[in-house]
């Protein structure tokens, strides 16, 4: 009994901060895992529409992104205001899509080629004409898994 009392009275150690770096590193690794490095700079403005029946895209390495929208302010002088396609980090044409898909395929093991999804990130105000052209080109290239990127409608019940 007296032993305990003695100890308590004596020790007034400073709180050890030795584990602080470990905690911060843990946070760091957490963020490194859950986030993705910001990919290509967007040259077209894309505000995806709202929807309710959404499904998640699982593996990032199996997804390629096709952006469609009006060029942003900076590029308007050169490219005008009509909706354009962006593949990777540059403006592209419908005819560039097969090559783009092929280049992405090379990075994926062959056994998983069937799981590649194209994510269409299309601005809500775009007309269907250009989207239809892209869809037709995707079908011709045999890329049939497509995801129309959308946001969850904030007022939906589910």
């Amino acid at each position: 009994m007296s032993k305990f009392a003695k100890k308590r009275g004596k020790a007034t150690p400073a709180i050890s901060t030795a584990s602080l770096p470990d905690i911060i590193f843990m946070l760091l690794f957490f963020f490194m895992v859950v986030t993705v490095l910001r990919d290509a700079e967007l040259k077209v403005s894309v505000v995806t529409p709202f929807a309710t029946e959404l499904s998640k895209l699982e593996e990032k390495s199996l997804v390629n992104y096709i952006y469609i929208g009006k060029p942003t302010e900076r590029y308007r002088e050169i490219y005008g205001t009509k909706p354009r396609i962006q593949l990777g980090d540059k403006f592209a044409d419908v005819h560039d899509i097969p090559l783009f898909l092929e280049l992405h395929k090379q990075k994926v093991p062959e056994s998983r080629h069937g799981l590649i999804t194209s994510s269409l990130r299309v601005d809500g105000l775009t007309t269907m004409g250009i989207v239809q052209d892209v869809k037709t080109q995707l079908r011709k290239s045999g890329q049939l898994r497509v995801n129309y990127s959308a946001k969850k409608r904030p007022d939906s019940k589910k």
């Binding site: 993705v36 995806t48 998640k56 049939l144 990127s149």
Partner: peptide, 17 residues
Amino acid sequence: TTTIVEDKGITVRLPPW
């Protein structure tokens, strides 16, 4: 430098050409 992208959307299967 990173973003938490909401990668959600309506998945469809296009018919073959």
